[in-house]
Structures are given as structure tokens and as C-alpha cells.
């Protein structure tokens, strides 16, 4: 049994009303009181590309949810589209357990990015949204302005978080601290200025989108 499956089973065993068993390979079955069982693949990859997701689905057609067990796991936009079309939930271990509790494993998406995604999609000045990665969006406003936005979920994003986002995903116009209680450090804002982007919270982003 792989290390991440062992850890996932141990993690789920700590959760009330949940139990889980190893099925085969990276597939586990989660049993929840008053909800359908969930078949989930627990992956240790750093990036779940579309080929990887397709391979998991071929190997385990019963898969309800694909879990990227590493907190740093990255989900490209085409993978997300593929999984959503296939009625397979995706995201972190925390997303998996929440979705299992709610009986929504097949439709769940990474809970870290769920509300920011909704905020952007429902913001009236946004004309078009292209999700390049779980945390990277290309936003076309009704004015025609195009902005690339990167998200950081930390409570207190620091300079390294901003630089790492830039290094990993390329230049962005805006770094959005999506933690609702978050507050970027002064060093994070300064790192953004050095790189050439703004580091903002939602209220500031709204204003930026309103005036861009």
C-alpha cells in the first residue's frame, strides 16, 4: 500500500462518522453514515495533469473523487474540466472528507478555491473566465481588459508565497489573498511590487476590477 493511501486511511479514521478501507492500488472506499459510499483515488502526484486523471479513471472506473493528497498538489484547468465533465469530484483530503459527509463527492471541487471561483464567476464586470490552473485565472472584463489573477490561500501570505506563485505559474497582474480573514504581510506586498503585480484582498480586487 502506498504511503499516501496509508496516511489517508489514518486521517479518515480520525474523523467521526467516517470509515475507510483500501480497495486496490490507490483506490479506497469511504463509508459515511446516511450517505452513499465514496470511491476515491488518493494520489501523491505534485500535479494532476489530464493524462494522469484519465489513467486513474481507466484503472478505476468506479472513482467518485480524485484526491491530490499533497497540500501543494496543482490542478491544471483542463484536468478540472475533464473531471467535472466525467462527474468526478476533485481536490484535497479535506475536500474529500467534507464531500463524503455531504454526499457530494461526485460534484465537489477543491474547497480552498470553491468560493473564490464563485466570486469571480458571479462578479458582474467579468465577461469571460479562463481557469488555467486551480489557482490561476485569466479574467476578461466587459471593458475588454484582460487580467491574470493568481490566488494564495494563506492566512498571512508572505514574500515567499508571492515569489513562489510567480515562479511556478509565470507572471500575474494580481495576487489575490483568498483567505477571507487573510492579510498579506508587508513583505508580500513589497515582493509583488518588485515583481510587478499587486497583492490584494477581495475588497481591493473588486475595486481593481471595477476600474480596470
Amino acid at each position: 500500500m502506498s504511503w499516501q493511501v496509508k496516511r489517508a486511511l489514518a486521517y479518515i479514521a480520525e474523523q467521526p462518522r467516517l470509515s475507510a478501507q483500501h480497495v486496490a492500488g490507490e483506490l479506497i472506499r469511504i463509508e459515511v453514515e446516511d450517505q452513499p459510499d465514496v470511491f476515491a483515488v488518493i494520489s501523491a502526484v505534485n500535479k494532476v495533469d489530464a493524462a494522469t486523471a484519465t489513467s486513474y479513471r481507466q484503472e478505476h472506473p468506479e472513482m467518485d473523487f480524485l484526491c491530490g493528497y499533497r497540500k501543494t498538489c496543482v490542478w491544471p484547468g483542463d484536468t478540472i474540466e475533464y473531471l467535472q465533465r466525467a462527474n468526478i469530484g476533485w481536490g484535497s483530503a479535506g475536500t474529500l472528507t467534507s464531500a463524503a459527509f455531504d454526499g457530494e463527492a461526485n460534484t465537489a471541487s477543491h474547497k480552498t478555491y470553491f468560493f473564490p471561483d464563485r466570486l469571480l464567476r458571479q462578479y458582474g464586470r467579468v465577461k469571460e473566465l479562463s481557469r488555467e490552473y486551480d489557482r490561476i485565472y485569466r479574467v476578461t472584463l466587459k471593458t475588454g481588459t484582460v487580467l491574470k489573477i493568481g490566488m494564495i490561500a494563506d492566512y498571512e501570505p508572505n514574500a515567499d508565497a508571492v515569489r513562489s506563485l510567480w515562479d511556478e505559474f509565470g507572471p500575474v497582474d494580481i495576487v489575490w489573498n483568498i483567505n477571507p480573514n487573510g492579510s498579506p504581510s508587508l513583505e508580500a506586498i513589497e515582493a509583488g511590487i518588485e515583481l510587478g503585480c499587486e497583492v490584494v484582498i477581495w475588497e481591493e480586487l473588486k475595486e481593481r476590477l471595477r476600474t480596470a
Partner: peptide
């Protein structure tokens, strides 16, 4: 490679402030 590490990197000034 075989651990779910979540690593937070901070400048000394950030650690002091927070």
C-alpha cells in the same frame, strides 16, 4: 517524495511580526 510536507517559508522579519 513520500511525505505530505506542507512547508511555510518566512523571512525573519515576517516571523517576528507575526
Amino acid at each position: 517524495e513520500f511525505l505530505p510536507l506542507h512547508i511555510l517559508y518566512m523571512l525573519p522579519s515576517e516571523e517576528r511580526r507575526t
